[in-house]
Design a protein around this nucleic acid. Structure first.
Length: 420
RNA sequence: GGAGAGGUGGCUGAGUGGUCGAAAGCGCUGGUCUCGAAAACCAGUGUACCUCCGGGUACCCAGGGUUCGAAUCCCUGCCUCUCCGCCA
């Protein structure tokens, strides 16, 4: 959410910003509602002021036994006018809020322009190991080892679900523990938070209203299954005024992520790459605005640390403005090389939302001078399991069909070093 | 799920129709005192919006309603607590 004053005073900046995101919201329509709203407010408040004054006089007269009938009759009329104007004001407030809630965040000034294909590779890490033998896609590897059973998941739930068995399930659990341990050792406080949240929380981080169709909603009580732990973790601080001394707040949590993938029918239908339920370890930071871009860099580095530990080659890319999510100002994706699929897999997305989410949430902080400001929020996957496991299967596949377990996971696997 | 009680400022807690945005205490900030600190004393201490920058308006869980006037009365929702039932 943007500050209406910002839209009013820096209209050109907003218009240019949303254009870079390929958003077609009508800013002039918002400004028109804003003008009408303020006119009504000024008028209604003038009348309320009058009513307050006269009501005090009525009280005084009644106390001294005088008749106040004239004033009461007059105020009855004023009250009716106030009621009409308040109704008008409510409607304008709602209209403004609805319109504003659809305006995306605007991109970081230096973010590359363009769409999905215009992302900029920032750096790469590790060598893509050339193998002398053919590497099949992860589902073939997993099913041959009996650690991945996609038909079973389909039978239970439908397409777009995966089922891990034996050491496959153990591997996922080991990865979760390894990641949580790594991040919490680096100062991120581990959290367990609800997986089902209300509409206010979904609005706060910016999933609502735009992503409504992409989320699972519970019948009867208007709750949503989280598409990422970002929602629960960030919203912990909704409707709160923090002290600057509390910043930065660094959190980490593991959760399942539920996504309907409504707009992705027919895309990545095989394997674990695009599924309706996957697990993810997510990091969230709430920081002082002055430090947010430094914090952004360190958050990417934190996610990279996981992949370096696992000895998996990756690249870091900065997304172009048209590919940024609704709430993001700047975003780095980390992609793993999957030799079986012969493509890069997006495994982590690390974003700076600046004050966009904080404003929607009503999360503020009192700065060094006692002034109220909005903090900046950031988050990053650290990392997504349903793509990490395929990458491990494909990168660690041996010629005999077995899969080595990355060294750092051995303690978490009860000493198991290989799946065969 | 059944029965009851209750939601007031950072906290405790008064206030049951009229100068109440809200007593008092605690906490916090600044000052006096002190070599310094504590104590004591003095002062300050919510948020948001509108503004012809003088001010004004709203907010006592949320949303409606009654009234000239609502923290106070009525309705709905949410949340918390106690007891019972159920349950990992």
């Amino acid at each position: 959410m943007h500050d209406i004053k910002f839209i009013r005073e820096q209209t050109d900046t907003i218009k240019a910003g949303i254009a870079r995101k390929n958003d077609k919201s009508d800013i002039d329509a918002i400004l028109a509602v804003d003008v009408a709203r303020r006119e009504v407010i000024t008028e209604v408040e003038k009348l309320q002021g009058e009513r307050n004054k006269v009501s005090a006089e009525i009280a005084k007269k009644k106390k001294s036994g005088e008749s106040a009938e004239d004033a009461i009759v007059a105020m009855r009329e004023v009250g009716e006018r106030i009621a009409i104007l308040e109704e008008k004001r409510r409607n304008l407030d709602e209209e403004l809020h609805t319109k504003m809630s659809w305006i995306p965040n605007i991109p970081y000034h230096d973010a590359p322009d363009g769409g999905e294909e215009d992302m900029v590779e920032v750096r790469t890490w590790g060598e893509i190991r050339k193998k002398s033998y053919d590497i099949p896609p992860h589902w073939e590897i997993g099913e041959r080892l009996n650690i991945l059973d996609l038909p079973a998941a389909t039978k239970i739930s439908g397409s777009g679900f995966y089922l891990l068995r034996g050491l496959g399930a153990r591997l996922q659990r080991a990865l979760i523990s390894y990641m949580l341990d790594t991040h919490s050792n680096d100062g991120f406080v581990e959290h367990y938070a609800p997986y089902i949240v209300n509409a206010d929380a979904m609005f706060g981080t910016g999933q609502l209203p735009k992503m409504e169709d992409d989320m699972y909603k519970t019948e009867g009580d208007n709750m949503y299954l989280v598409p990422t732990a970002e929602v629960s973790l960030t919203n912990i601080y909704r409707k709160q005024i923090l002290d600057y001394k509390q910043l930065p707040i660094c959190m980490v949590g593991h959760s399942p992520c539920f996504r309907r993938e409504a707009g992705a029918a027919g895309k990545d239908t095989r394997g674990m790459i695009r599924v309706h339920q996957f697990d993810k370890v997510e990091m969230v930071k709430i920081v002082h605005p002055e430090t947010s871009y430094d914090e952004h860099e360190s958050l990417v580095a934190q996610a990279e640390k996981i992949l370096q530990g696992l000895q998996l080659p990756y690249r870091v890319c900065e997304l172009a403005t048209g590919d940024l999510s609704f709430a993001a100002a700047r975003c780095y994706d980390i992609e793993l090389w999957a030799p079986g699929l012969d493509r890069w897999l997006e495994i982590s997305s690390v974003s700076n939302f600046e004050s966009f989410q904080a404003r929607r949430m009503g999360c503020k902080f009192r700065d060094e001078e006692g002034k109220i400001q909005f903090p900046h929020t950031l988050n990053g996957s650290g990392v997504a399991l349903a793509r990490l496991i395929p990458a491990i299967l494909e990168n660690y596949l041996n010629e005999d069909g077995s899969v080595d377990i990355p060294d750092v996971l051995h303690p978490y696997m009860g000493g198991v070093k290989k799946i065969d």
